[in-house]
Design a protein around this nucleic acid. Structure first.
Lengths: 241, 241
DNA sequence: TATTATTGTATATTTTTTATACAATAATTT
DNA sequence: AAATTATTGTATAAAAAATATACAATAATA
């Protein structure tokens, strides 16, 4: 594998992805831990090939980390401060891993490439957490789902990026009908409500919520879901395509 | 003045600005015409210096064309298709202006720089049209306000960029209280309504509109405005800072 | 067959939005 | 100086939407 500086990338432009999943009534974010000493977490990121749309680049980055395709994706903001550089992080990383990293010419070239000022395009993705098998890349020590309220300390401005992504998701929830992308193919009305509650961080009155969702006219009702519980079985729904 | 390729710009990244003004009940966009044969119109654009925030770059571009500072500015979208290049436009321009343009080495370097694939960050601005004295740069034959409904045919995807800017402005009109930036320091309630009507392309019931605006609690009422007309004088309002 | 937990549907209440009526005012006309 | 006119400001009525509450339906268990 070629080093980034030798690839045919657009320089000083990166893509950062906030991958949202949903599990146990909580909104989760998929975050890799970097495979070096020093406890560094960073959002799934990457660069844009010369002959690649930025949307394609984001899809590629997501595919590499989640193993799935056709992900719901939304560009939400550009982070472009002049001070936005990997240098402080990289220097810290090198200090922690001085033994492993031999500083030869090639490494110097990589260092120069990485520590330039970067303009980052933020994307957020909504995935069905059950379909995702998180994929460790060469750079990852681990890759885990973290609750949105218990995120690890991340490098650079990556925490800000997550916050901005969440704000966008929350405010677009009624104009874009996208929350269903966090659920499996079929789901009950209660599950939909719990997803909305996790995203909006508030509760809804069950009956009114159901009416509101059904009036969107985007769901089709399927057969009932018999669980063996001592109560009425709920209907299953599916998002109309 | 140095040529762009020799400046300390981030390469392959540009900023395109949609500058909105308001005049005679119409939303206007400030658009320069390029100073070459062939009728080319292009949005006010520019590039980002290495040591410059992208927001600063947008402010600089706006200042250069409008002569005013402290402009209301909002980043709204990135345009990043791989096919997004100036090449078709430049080739056409060269064909029209073959006599003027001598193709020497330096020009070739500029050509190569300009015809690369560019990722463009779209900003829109709201200005008080009375404060703006449109500034022609070296590249401009003219710079004029065009009604949003009578825009000239523009190069590249600049028409799409305007459309996206308008859509964003419309949809953010109630969440961001920004339409006042299109008006002078003081204004009547009727003028506010007409601005909203121009942006939203629909009419409002006067009494309800006024109530809605006043309930935002962002205006302070000043003295009345006596015009000499045979009717009751309206109050003037000012945006609270 | 009664009980229990939970879902689905109907309806009442409250709030917000939209529509309408009318009073107040400043300059003009008579 | 009083009536007229055009326009603004305020109040209120009607309609629609959002929210709260009540209760019927159902599937498994006791």
């Amino acid at each position: 594998m070629k080093n980034p500086s030798q690839q045919n990338y657009i320089s000083q432009v990166s893509i950062d992805c906030v991958i949202f999943g949903y599990y146990e009534r909580q909104l989760k974010v998929l975050i890799p831990k970097i495979n070096f000493k020093g406890d560094f977490w960073a959002l799934p990121s990457g660069f844009v090939y010369q002959d690649e749309d930025i949307d394609q680049a984001a899809e590629r980055i997501l595919r590499d980390r989640t193993g799935i395709q056709d992900i719901y994706l939304e560009q939400f903001r550009v982070f472009g401060k002049a001070s936005r550089t990997n240098k402080p992080f990289l220097d810290e990383l090198i200090a922690f891993n001085f033994d492993k990293l031999n500083v030869k010419n090639e490494a110097q070239q990589e260092y120069d490439w990485f520590t330039k000022r970067f303009i980052s395009i933020g994307y957020y993705a909504l995935v069905d957490i059950n379909k995702v098998v998180p994929q460790k890349t060469d750079l990852d020590e681990s890759i885990e789902w973290y609750s949105i309220h218990e995120l690890p300390r991340m490098i650079m401005d990556h925490s800000d990026i997550v916050n901005e992504a969440l704000k966008t998701l929350q405010s677009h929830l009624d104009e874009k009908i996208n929350a269903f992308n966090l659920l499996p193919e079929t789901f009950t009305m209660k599950e939909v409500q719990e997803v909305y509650e996790a995203i909006c961080e508030k509760t809804f009155v069950r009956t009114n919520f159901q009416k509101m969702i059904l009036e969107l006219n985007v769901l089709e009702r399927l057969e009932k879901k018999f669980t063996g519980a001592a109560n009425k079985a709920p209907y299953l729904y599916r998002f109309k395509k």
